[in-house]
Nucleic acid binder design. Structure first.
Lengths: 121, 121
DNA sequence: CTTGACCTTGACCCTGGGGGCAGGGTTTAG
DNA sequence: CTAAACCCTGCCCCCAGGGTCAAGGTCAAG
């Protein structure tokens, strides 16, 4: 299959597929005319990458999952490295939420302050 | 004062000062040799921009605050436009927190799932 | 006068995950 | 034969600057 077929089958854009390749996540063969050729397995890989990116992982962080798939597993997240990646990401998200919560409080304080200052004057 | 003095006084890098200028937040005069010259007021502006950026506003969103300062106010956030900007930003942060919370739950589910699958097999 | 230290200038490439466009080659259907 | 649909590479854009470069200005000491 060509890049357009893969993109359609996996639900991403052609641009995204080429980007994944530039990040080393795909290594398609080339036809004599230069067109990229993909296998059915690549569809699974692209779907997985898409799902992981939507969870906020970076392209680089999807590596262990793809390796897990390539190693012959049905699921990308059953390898120890994948579990570690999940836990790392959860910790990141928790830190983010904590920071944003703090930020929210700061903003609310500033707003209250500014409002009070206005009514005072 | 020159750009280095301004940067030191406001606690930012020279690079940041030039970036603020490129975003239209500063308009320094130039000496005959091309050096930028800043006033004491600019220190206040840069400090304000720095503070607002650290609250997650974009450079563009700091515009109303700077205008408020330039209009002669002691505080940048006492103008109506500033209050609106605060409220907008708070709403953004709230949306972010909600999304991240949802994401966190998804990740936790996936992790649990993957762990259970492993013990099952 | 010259050296060195320190300051400034503009200009270039980099970040992440692609979007958008240009300009061209290829393939397939009518 | 031609048009549509597909593919290729390559360049610029986002955001808030960071890093580095090559050049030139300024001021003091020697």
């Amino acid at each position: 299959m060509h890049i357009g077929d893969l993109a359609a089958a996996a639900g991403v854009t052609i641009k995204a597929v080429r980007y994944y390749e530039s990040q080393g996540l795909l290594k398609p063969r080339r036809e004599p005319n230069g067109y990229r050729t993909y296998s059915a397995e690549d569809v699974v890989v692209v779907r997985e990458v898409k799902a992981l990116l939507s969870l906020g992982l970076t392209a680089e962080q999807t590596y262990p999952f793809i390796e897990c798939l390539r190693a012959g597993n049905d699921r990308a997240d059953v390898c120890p490295a994948s579990l570690t990646a999940y836990r790392t990401r959860i910790a990141e998200v928790d830190r983010w939420i904590a920071e944003l919560t703090e930020l929210r409080a700061k903003l609310a304080d500033l707003l209250t302050d500014a409002e009070n200052w206005r009514t005072k004057v």
